[in-house]
Design a protein around this nucleic acid. Structure first.
Lengths: 97, 97
DNA sequence: CTTTTATATGAATAATTGTTCATATATTAA
DNA sequence: TTAATATATGAACAATTATTCATATAAAAG
């Protein structure tokens, strides 16, 4: 295995690691096709504002979500259709195990 | 969110968690289109036999790999094309961040 | 039968990580 | 300006997890 590939493999595992947490995957799930503020996300998935905010930071720094500020609210949305595709492919896999 | 869906979301995060470890993703990578025994896997990815065996057990119990015994060797291979698809979709995502 | 080779596994350790709690920052309203 | 609301963040704690080391099992060879 080439060294460059090895680096990319590590990056790949880190990408999947982001999807591999129940709070984060719940956040991604509620953001499918939507754009919600932090409190709406927290209420929808029944987690504390703080926990959600911490995980949103991780999702943002991994470039899986983006946000825009509207007044005092911050609205989050999925970065691109890749995120949705990965989510949905995994979802389909579960049906066929 | 329905309760059944919530359970499935948890399962989904657990699926991605399996992909979210560098040793396991390296194993999946070397098994793309191949079938290798434990020692070959370990040598290829430069990890100890024990570490690889431990991770193979996790991959197997998650149904991402299967194996067949040939003499004293145990040959591992990817369970189905889903595993490959998920790996490759993630891989492509990395190119477009 | 004994030795060698391949793999599996349990215990221990180290490291990572997610949540909570308290608090800080920022925006809007009164 | 002061109070209220929305979000972010640092520290601490708890829980999970991956590796190593030693050893067990199992198959083949001598």
């Amino acid at each position: 295995m080439k060294l460059l590939d090895e680096d990319k493999i590590i990056d790949l595992s880190e990408l999947f690691k982001i999807f591999g947490d129940s709070t984060r995957i719940k956040i991604i799930n509620v953001l499918l096709g939507k754009c919600l503020c932090v409190n709406d996300i927290a209420n929808t998935i029944n987690m504390s504002q703080s926990a959600v905010s911490h995980q949103l930071r991780i999702l943002k720094s991994s470039k899986l979500v983006k946000c825009k500020k509207i007044g005092k609210e911050v609205h989050y949305f999925l970065s691109d259709e890749h995120v949705e595709k990965i989510f949905k492919l995994g979802w389909e896999h579960l049906d066929e195990i």
